[in-house]
Design a protein around this nucleic acid. Sequence first.
DNA 1: AGCACGCCGACT
DNA 2: GTCGGCGTGCTC
Length: 827
Amino acid sequence: MIPGSWYADVILPLPLPGFFTYRIPSGLESRVKPGMRVTVQFGNRKLYTAMVSKVYQETPSGYDIKELITLLDDHPVVNELQLKLWEWMAGYYLCFPGDIFRAALPAGLKLESETRVFAESNYSGSADIPENDRHILQLISNYGEASISDLQKAGGKKDIMPALKQLYEKKLIVMEEKVLETFKPRMLIMIRLTGSWSHKDKLHSLLDSLNKAPQQGKLVNRYLTLSEYTEKKPAAWMDKARVLKGIKSGQSALNSLVRKGIFELRNQEVSRLGIPDLEIQEPVPLNDKQKNALEEIRSGIEKRDVVLLHGVTSSGKTEIYIHLIREELAKGRQVLYLIPEIALTTQIIARLRRVFGARVGIYHSRFSDNERVEIWGNLSGNAKTKVEPYQIILGARSALFLPFERLGLVIVDEEHENTYKQSDPSPRYHARDTAIMLARLHGAKVLLGSATPSLDSYYNCHAGKYRMVELNSRYLDMELPDITLVNLGEAYRKKQMRSHFSLTLLDAIERSLKNREQVILFQNRRGFSIYLACEECGWVPHCRHCDVSLTYHKKDKSLVCHYCGNSISPPSCCSGCGSTKLQMKGLGTEQVEEEIALFFPGARVARLDMDTARSRKSMERIITGIEQQKTDILVGTQMISKGLDFDNVSLVGILNADNMLHYPDFRAYEKSFQLMMQVSGRAGRKNTRGRVIIQAFDTGQELYGHLMNNDYKSFAMSQLTERKQFGYPPYTRLIEIMVKHKDSSTAKQAAEQLAMLLRKGLRSQVMGPEYPLVGKIQNYYLQRILIKTNKEDSIIRVKQVLTASVEQMKTQQELSAARIMVDVDPG
DNA sequence: AGCACGCCGACT
DNA sequence: GTCGGCGTGCTC
């Protein structure tokens, strides 16, 4: 034991509880700070990037301590506020610090090692090596250098570790841990005139001498113009591609010039973060209603940390945000603007960039990891290339983890969206709630915005926790749409249905098309995918690994499992009765698209769903298709409800409204209502009132009445009464526990045991265990337990009991392999 | 999550 | 008898 040594508690990117302690090598004591990354050896061999969370001097006891290997940063990549947020998240969402570490940092900042194996040259051939080991040694010397996974693949699927160990002990191979750098800086080749030509005379004679090589002369001239060359300054480095552009066989011309020593080359690291070349414009002036709302938000923010802006669809919320952002930037503070899914945000990006230009950064999962590393560096001041730090970040939920220094405002747009809740993998966090915590740490304010606020936020306003600001009229005074309800049962009886479309809907479509207006048809995907079924016995093909029926994908003519992704080709006969009469069932967007095209052969039909929007490009194509009115009818899933503004849509049809109501989820009504209201909001144009036609079986539902009156408030109030009555959130807090095991009866036993322990330790209601909707995923059987906690109960105590109960349950040998997953505030 | 160790069935 | 499959436990 060395007296006076320094130690660092680090977070490893692994699902392990707590921190691990490493000794700081002498010389580094003064440099290692919380928030910096270090590499450490963990276990026998592997190296990981770990995050320093604490540095201290008391010697820990009870285990041997390794020294950390290297310090990776000069400045913290994660600041103190972020570490505090991580700590809060791990505690609140009951997950490991490593889960958060992994979710927070882009891969390029989390280096991991790989074992490389080399053959020693001194192998003389006949040593006493077993046949199998010799084979592996042969492989290694063939490759020269190999990774363990390479060898695993080459040597069949058997475990090669024992063989490697043997070879290593006989000193026939060497093993080495190689840390893999994944971040690749973007390099540009730069060129310039060498110093010896900087004299005017020399330059002239050079150009003369290039008479016979016109392309070279052209290149030199182009360089001189682009670099604004003068004799007085040293020749500037210019982007090679830019100089060569348009010069025929420019590369070979350049090669000759370099050979002659006229030009020189170098590689330079450049930023990937493009600076938009846009003229900055003043924000659009607000109308009186918006001005009022802005004023109310300002005063609300003084009194409460969170304000909810409840503004009907197309009420111009974004413009209000823009004005608020501007005020925040003027105070020198940063703004985080969260949106549920970046996919549909080209419109918002353009609007922000128009006003804020290069001050807006964008961060989301469709960015490459390299770009994400650069954005991280931009904000934390660790960038190698000089770029102005962003002041506004527009991003999906993971943007919460960025290294903000001085946030002033967090906007959570479409705050009701359930994509804000991450359900898998851990950390299962809610971005809205985490954003509120993040803002609190920064002393910043939060603005939640929605046309259909979540009941949780609505409740918080009524309870006085948040402030509510309402914006009840649409921008440009458009009327709210006229909503018609069609009773499907009746329509079928009266033969007023053609396939899946009521005559009312078909008439309305026809009228819209005649007026050269656009139509949106909405078909919720949930529960409406297409599957194969036997006409004789009703058999439906199921996934081999999961307890779900397979969905038919027409494009590649296969049956796909939506849980594990396994796909098979459709069987030709029923495996229940052998019949060959297999029929496609269900109604997907694909089918709606096809059928509607039959009814309106002249119409241009497009489809927007998970399949067609897979790539950014194809999605943008679909969206611009509508914007430019190259599409008459758009068939889509929920995707169409998210932040898209089209101005020539006069009709929205909801084909099967009630299939989503009957989901066994206490939020089913809330979600359905929000979805329908959002979809309806797409209807309406400047001068004509939009129309919405909702087809449903169960038209007696109270919810439709509220919907037709555009009355969110009454709907919310009646739902809240129900939630209170049945003890659901926001009046209680839910914690969902999934118990997983390969063996169905062990899963059940473990869950029963755990539920029993929870009931013993908690005053809260413990429900289950029960079979969840999908009882088996990837060969693991599931059991579900739900804890319903009164808001008054200490959540900390509930979590303590939960942790202790899991531990105690695991002491039973036969149950110890059961896996437990906890989801706090499940979505 | 890896990775090592140890226990049991199927092959020479 | 050994090989190699997987279940179990530990990692600062």
